[in-house]
Computed example of a mutant assay.
Amino acid sequence: MDTFFAIAFSFPTVIFSVLLCVAIVYWLISLVGLGDIEADGDIDASGDFSGLMVTLGLQGVPLPLVLTLLFLIAWLASYFAELLLGALVPDGFLHALFGLAIIAGALVMSVLVTAVVIRPLRPLFRRAYLPPLQKRIIGTACVITSATVTETKGRAEAILDGAHLVLQVRSHTPLAHRERAVLIEHIPDKNAWWVVPEAEFLAGESAG
């Protein structure tokens, strides 16, 4: 037990110990009803962050769950690397370099393993949470935050149920910075949304 605590609360494992403790506290707070676990939490990330999540294969499940798995797997990798190899490395500068190498290796391993672990979980969260979100967000007004919006690129901000969303958007009608638009359709393969100018949307509603 002394060995366990010595490794868990010493560099480099202590970094992941702190992160894992934060994740555990979050889940405990959520379980007693003081917090709110957003199953679609990855949608309010910026476009660049969402793209990174997709690239790493970490999309499709709640962000808190992804982070918890990342911290847990990184902690396990760091702990056992230090347990098995730490005694072979002299203290001082070399051990510090060894610790940095463990951190880098643990992070890479945690991303790879987490991407595999969450793969079978995606359909569960997609069926339970994604369709309602898509239905609620359709018709929501947004403000263009990128310089322009075209059929291939663009970004906008929207507010849904009090949450601030930063979304990738596309439009057949070119839109400029700070123009208002309305979300009308989801583009699943690009994690983006088709939008139309707000005036055009309101004119269509009036005509209907």
Rank of each mutant, 00 (worst) to 15 (best):
P197G: 10
H172P: 14
G51Y: 04
V111E: 03
I184K: 12
A104K: 12
L97M: 13
R119W: 12
G57H: 10
I118H: 10
T3W: 04
T140Y: 09
V149D: 04
D36F: 13
Y129P: 13
I118C: 10
E151W: 04
A156V: 01
F49E: 02
C21W: 06
L28V: 15
F16D: 06
G154Y: 07
S78C: 09
S50A: 12
E38G: 14
A8L: 14
G41V: 09
A156H: 02
L85P: 15
H186S: 13
I37K: 00
T150Y: 01
A81W: 06
A115D: 05
D161A: 13
L183N: 10
P174M: 07
L121V: 11
R126I: 00
A101T: 10
W193C: 11
T150A: 02
W194L: 14
G33L: 05
D40E: 09
I118M: 07
G204K: 13
Y79W: 14
R127P: 04
L167F: 05
V169M: 10
Y79G: 02
E151T: 15
T152D: 11
R136W: 03
W194S: 05
L52H: 07
M109Y: 02
L63T: 08
I73K: 09
I138L: 13
T114M: 06
T150V: 08
G35Y: 05
P131N: 09
E200N: 05
A128H: 03
S10I: 02
L52M: 06
L183A: 03
R127S: 14
I138Y: 06
V196L: 00
A106V: 08
T145A: 00
D44K: 12
G57T: 10
C142H: 00
V196I: 09
L34M: 01
A104W: 01
R119H: 11
A163M: 08
I43Q: 09
S146K: 02
A104V: 13
L97S: 09
V61A: 01
V54S: 11
F5K: 04
V116Q: 11
L83F: 12
V195D: 06
L112P: 00
G86N: 05
V14L: 13
R122T: 07
A176D: 10
Q168C: 09
N191E: 05
L67R: 13
K190H: 08
L20C: 02
Y79L: 01
A106E: 02
V108E: 04
Y129Q: 09
D44N: 11
V54Q: 10
L65T: 13
R136I: 01
R122S: 03
S171G: 09
L84D: 08
A6T: 15
E205H: 11
F4R: 07
L121Y: 06
L28S: 13
A181T: 09
A87P: 15
I118S: 12
M53H: 03
P197F: 07
K190I: 01
L34G: 14
D40P: 04
I24D: 04
S110M: 02
L88H: 06
V25A: 15
V61H: 06
G139Q: 12
F125T: 00
T148R: 06
A104M: 06
G105W: 01
A74M: 07
I187Q: 12
N191D: 05
A6P: 03
D44R: 12
A6E: 10
T145N: 04
D36H: 13
S46W: 02
L76Y: 01
V18A: 15
V143T: 15
Q168I: 06
L63C: 05
